[in-house]
Design a protein around this nucleic acid. Structure first.
Length: 284
DNA sequence: CTTGAGCGG
């Protein structure tokens, strides 16, 4: 059941990287709505802990605003980070497994040298040379991210076992574990005090630091009904099962709402009362 | 010794 990525979302939908850890959907919205009307936006989070993965999506109503957002907001400093704003691509196999984990690199490795070694297999989108936290010295470990899976795959084939000039050991090159981040997010969320509620009582979402909650028709006993993937519920937004948080006047004067959705919060600038909300997109 | 966060709904 692919998301209905019909028509032209390719030109309105942006991916925003390097979000500050604590940035909320609402805050993301408030940054991008300065450019123009935003259809929807969300920060991607770990399901269980709510810990932010540090990136999110913003879908504009108009193509020209998406372009403008890239031009004006890319590189914007937000808290301790610089946002990276670019077009999102339709999800698919070709953009998965694009990240390399490389060990046995010379300790003297530089980013330029990494580029020389790995740049020939495709466009390198991101490089990270790991350093020891205490000494600051290179660990001989790096991540290199390509645009496409095929590029990463070829790099593994060609570079795993390769011995760079003046090096004694062969490089170890593999595709980075994808679920390492899930675990990390889980722990991070845990340690961030996610289960600080000492009382065992409340059954509702006791998420720290998340927008004040108003509960709208939830399931029996106040539980949050499970949304079954693949079942395209055509339930009107307002009566859809789930928990809504009313947001009072945001800085831009719109009403809005955050809908809990698989324990993600998605900011919708229009709000659940609006009948035209999320038309065509569906909640899967 | 798989980062900090580049592709979901």
């Amino acid at each position: 059941m692919p998301f209905n990525q019909n028509n032209d979302t390719a030109l309105t939908n942006l991916i925003v990287n390097y979000l500050p850890q604590n940035l909320t959907d609402k805050e993301l919205f408030s940054i991008f709505v300065t450019i123009g009307p935003v259809e929807s936006c969300r920060v991607m989070r770990d399901n269980k802990t709510g810990y932010s993965y540090g990136f999110g999506f913003v879908n504009f109503s108009r193509q020209e605003d998406a372009t403008k957002a890239i031009n004006q907001l890319n590189g914007l400093e937000v808290q301790n980070k610089r946002l990276k704003v670019s077009y999102a691509r339709p999800s698919g196999e070709d953009i998965k497994d694009t990240n390399l984990y490389i060990t046995n690199l010379p300790r003297t490795i530089t980013e330029d040298q990494l580029e020389d070694l790995f740049g020939k297999f495709g466009r390198i989108v991101q490089k990270n040379i790991l350093k020891d936290k205490i000494t600051g010295l290179p660990r001989g470990v790096a991540f290199v991210r390509y645009d496409r899976k095929s590029e990463a795959a070829q790099a593994v084939t060609e570079m795993n076992g390769y011995v760079p000039e003046g090096c004694l050991e062969p490089l170890v090159v593999k595709i980075a574990e994808e679920h390492g981040k899930q675990k990390a997010a889980y722990y991070a969320g845990w340690h961030a005090g996610y289960t600080q509620s000492r009382g065992s009582g409340s059954s509702s979402q006791k998420k720290s630091g998340v927008i004040p909650t108003v509960v709208v028709p939830a399931g029996p006993r106040g539980t949050v009904p499970t949304v079954r993937a693949g079942v395209p519920t055509r339930i009107p937004a307002y009566s859809a099962p789930g928990v809504y948080s009313q947001v009072r006047a945001n800085p831009n004067g719109f009403g809005g709402a955050v809908r809990q959705d698989k324990s993600h919060y998605r900011y919708n600038p229009v709000g659940p009362a609006n009948a035209g909300y999320n038309v065509g997109g569906g909640y899967y």
